[in-house]
Amino acid sequence: MLRYTVSRLISAVPTLALVLVLAFSLVHAAPGGPFDTERALPPETEARLNEAYGLDQPFWVQFGNYVGGLLRGDFGPSYRYPQSTVGELIADAFPVSATLGLLALVVGAGLGIAIGIVAALRQNSVLDHVLMSVSMTGISVPGFVIAPLAVLLFAVTLRWLPASGLQTPAHYVLPVFALALPMLAYVARLMRASLVETLKSQFIRTARSQGLSSRTLVFRYAMKPALIPVVSYLGPAIAAVLTGSVVIEQIFNIPGIGRLFIQGALNRDYTLVMGLVVLYSSLLIVMNLIVDLLYGVLDPRVRY
C-alpha cells in the first residue's frame, strides 16, 4: 500500500510538470503583459518593472526560476497586488472557498447518498420518479441559473436571506445550496443506479435465500459495492468544490479562490494564475490517489 502510494506520487510528477509547462507557456504566449493598462506606462518604467520581476529573461530561465521557487514553497510575488505574495493571497482565499466547499460537500454527498438509497429501495415508485426527475433537473440546470433565481426568490422577493457576502451563518445558506445542488443531484442518481444494480446481483439473491434481513442486505452486503462509483465521482468533485466555484463566488460576491482566479486571469497576474493552477492540479492528483486507495478499502479483490 505504501509502495503503491509512493509510486503513484512519483508518477504524478510528469503530470504536474506537463500542467506547469502548459500553463506557463500559455500565459507567456498570450499577447500583452501584466503591466499593460489602459494608461500606457512610460517605456523605461515598464522595462524596469519587467527587469524587477525577471520578465526580460528568456522563457526557460523564467520557468526554471518559477519551478525553483515552487520547490522552496514560494509561489512568487503577485504582479497586481505588489504588497502581497501569491502564497498570501491563496492563504487568504483558500479557507473561504474550502469552508464553503466542505459545507457543500457534506450537504451534497450526504443528502445525495441518502436520496439515492431511498429511491433505490422504492424503485419505480412515484417517490422514486419524483426524486429522480428533480435530480435530473438539478444536474441539467447550471449553477449560474439556479443561483440568481434563488437570490431573486429568497433574497429580493421574500427577503428571507441575505443576497451576498459571508458575514453570518445565514449568508452561507444560498451559496452552499447553489454549490451543493448539482453534486447532490449527481450523487443521488449515481447512488440509486449502482444500488439498484448491486441489489440485482446473485450474491444478494443468495443472501436473501439465507433469510437475512433487508437491513443486512442493503447496509452490510450491498452498500460497499454500491458506493464505489460514488467514491470515484466524489474524488475530482471534492477537488473542484474545495477550490471554489468561479460562478458562485462571482454571484454571491465571495472572496474565494474562484474569484481570485478570474481576477488574476483578467488582470494577467501570471504568478497568481500559475499558483492557482498548481494548487488545483495537486489537489486533483491527491484526490484521485485517495479514491484509488479507497477502492482497496471497499473491494478486497483490489491489491496494490
Binding site: Q202, F203, R205, T206, S209, K224, P225, D299, P300, R301
Partner: peptide
C-alpha cells in the same frame, strides 16, 4: 428451506470474508 445455486463464483459476497 435452503438453496445452493449454480454459480459459486457469483453466489458469495466478494466484499465480505
Amino acid at each position: 428451506l435452503s438453496i445452493v445455486f449454480q454459480d459459486p463464483m457469483t453466489s458469495l459476497n466478494p466484499y465480505l470474508t
